[in-house]
């Protein structure tokens, strides 16, 4: 006996016009907000980047791609700024991760005072970058600063070649807190049986670290790297405040340069063009990250 296995086809239900538009009505509030604060400014930025503007940011003359080719790519300063930004992002993303990793390993085992240490390591999360920058201005001061007094040196930490590293150090410190919190949480999630069986096999601390801990928390590390890179690209208040609104070429990071072009130099067109370039850079980095994630992160 052969059963009729053919399933009945679902009946086609005719939707009323209201049912057709209903989902879009639910989307409308979100779309309206995105349109006003995201899509319109985005479109406007691309539009502005092909014009030159007056001091108030009103487009005056269409120049095509001149803003990109002549006013940015044609200037050494632009390339220096771009390279500095990438260097800065690399240093800060890795530095924050490594410090977060070390501090969370230091507080992994409980001992007397480990809670206090954990609180100290996590503290930068709660500190506004503007407040930290003002404090570090004093610490870095060229003649009377804490660092110079401590080491008996007379180094201008915020000038010349030191400036980049001084700003990067503050940013790494600010980043280390969130890295510490996430990596600590990740460490707590590694099953203890793995360590136990490892110990039975005679593995030492470093073998456990590299063969158990790191692979186990790789999703956390990957997530943290993404967050670090995004935050590092957005670094602004440290640059503005530590350098007193005047970074030298090694610290003229792209977000600062955008702000300076638009709101100090009133050159809105190059600010817009830089923004578009920043968008493209972040787009490429995001794509690379996600393809990388699929291949080498263990879940």
């Amino acid at each position: 006996m052969v059963k009729n296995t053919k399933r009945p086809r679902p009946m086609k239900i005719k939707k009323t016009p209201y049912e057709i538009i209903e989902p879009y009505l639910f989307l409308l509030p979100a779309l309206a907000v995105f349109a006003v604060f995201l899509y319109y400014p985005f479109g406007r930025t691309i539009y502005l980047s092909t014009w030159v503007t007056d001091a108030l940011g009103r487009p005056k003359k269409f120049v095509g791609l001149d803003n990109y080719t002549i006013r940015l790519f044609g200037k050494d300063a632009f390339w220096t700024s771009l390279v500095s930004t990438l260097e800065f992002v690399g240093v800060v993303a890795l530095g924050g991760l490594i410090i977060g990793m070390i501090t969370s390993l230091l507080t992994y085992n409980r001992y007397k005072g480990s809670d206090f240490c954990a609180a100290v390591y996590a503290m930068p999360v709660a500190i506004a970058s503007a407040a930290a920058s003002m404090a570090f201005r004093m610490i870095y001061h060229p003649t009377g600063g804490l660092l110079n007094n401590l080491f008996g040196t007379q180094i201008n930490f915020l000038g010349g070649v030191y400036q980049f590293w001084s700003v990067a150090a503050v940013t790494i410190w600010l980043q280390s807190g969130i890295n510490f919190i996430f990596i600590s949480a990740g460490l707590k999630g590694v099953p203890t049986e793995l360590y136990e069986s490892c110990s039975i096999d005679g593995a030492n601390y470093w073998q456990k670290l590299f063969h158990i801990t790191l692979p186990s928390i790789s999703p956390t590390l990957f997530f943290q790297i993404i967050i670090n890179i995004i935050n590092a690209f957005q670094s602004f208040s440290q640059v503005k405040l530590l350098t007193n609104e005047s970074p030298n070429s090694s610290t003229n990071l792209i977000v600062y340069a955008i702000w300076h072009d638009a709101f100090r130099a009133q050159r809105f067109e190059t600010a817009a063009a830089r923004s578009v370039i920043l968008f493209l850079i972040i787009l490429v980095i995001t794509l690379i990250q996600f393809s990388f994630e699929k291949r080498s992160v263990n879940y």
């Binding site: 001061h141 060229p142 003649t143 010349g160 350098t243 007193n244 005047s246």
Partner: peptide
């Protein structure tokens, strides 16, 4: 060298 601006 005391940096840009007057503060330092």
């Amino acid at each position: 060298y005391l940096n840009q601006g007057n503060d330092d």
